[in-house]
């Protein structure tokens, strides 16, 4: 599903954010990406989302060589990936339903079908009763669940999450992780960047650990 081959990323010619990264992720896997802030987690995710291009090496996702992807094809590529952001990135000028429907609107899914899928996604994260609420009326944990619903409403093959439990207490974090495991169980490949080591240790999935831009560990949680 994802393959990094000798990937390096420099910013401004000097700062080396990533150096010689090699790994493969199979379809249907669930894994964590850890490391201190500044270790390169975000850079790695940005490469997968094709927000940036590697300075060296190749990134392959779902059969696409991202470096060879034409700029006009990037939007269609991104539609195959669901992304959960740390700060959830909801749009505060529209209600929960519209927020979750956004990926479907972009793809021009017929409104009837879109409504069905939005409700299914909201039901999955337990927020079906709040579809007419505005994001501001929800708690942080609920907002994050809306963010997850938006990421999965399109049934993506790959789900990325950048510190999805960053602002949540342990109980809510565990709930969120359980959600990700549910999606993984139905075949979605899930990659979660997190520095919540305690939580990661309990979940026993594969872990990629970055330190100063290098991949220093790749294996089961210790």
């Amino acid at each position: 599903m994802i393959a990094f081959e000798h990937v390096g990323k420099r910013y401004g010619g000097r700062f080396e954010a990533l150096a010689d990264i090699n790994f493969r992720v199979e379809r249907g896997e669930m894994l964590f990406l850890t490391g201190h802030s500044g270790a390169g987690k975000s850079s790695l995710l940005r490469l997968i989302m094709r927000l940036e291009r590697p300075s060296r090496g190749r990134v392959l996702v779902a059969g696409h060589d991202l470096d060879r992807l034409h700029l006009s094809q990037v939007p269609y590529y991104r539609r195959q990936i669901g992304v959960v952001f740390q700060d959830h990135q909801l749009l505060f000028d529209r209600d929960i339903f519209a927020n979750v429907a956004l990926p479907l609107t972009i793809q021009g899914i017929e409104p009837h079908e879109a409504a069905r899928r939005v409700r299914a996604a909201l039901d999955k994260v337990g927020l079906l009763h709040r579809e007419r609420a505005l994001p501001i009326e929800l708690s942080t944990g609920e907002q994050q669940r809306v963010g997850i619903a938006r990421a999965v409403v399109n049934k993506p093959a790959l789900l990325l999450a950048d510190e999805p439990t960053g602002n949540l207490d342990p109980q809510l974090s565990a709930d969120i992780m359980r959600l990700f495991e549910d999606f993984n169980r139905i075949g979605t490949t899930v990659l979660i960047a997190s520095h919540d080591l305690a939580l990661i240790a309990r979940l026993r999935h594969r872990v990629l650990k970055l330190r100063e831009g290098r991949l220093v560990r790749d294996g089961e949680a210790a």
């Binding site: 939007p75 992304v83 990135q89 956004l102 990926p103 972009i106």
Partner: peptide, 12 residues
Amino acid sequence: QEIEVVTLIGAT
């Protein structure tokens, strides 16, 4: 922010 978000989730 809205432009950023829709671009991230695949808007042309």
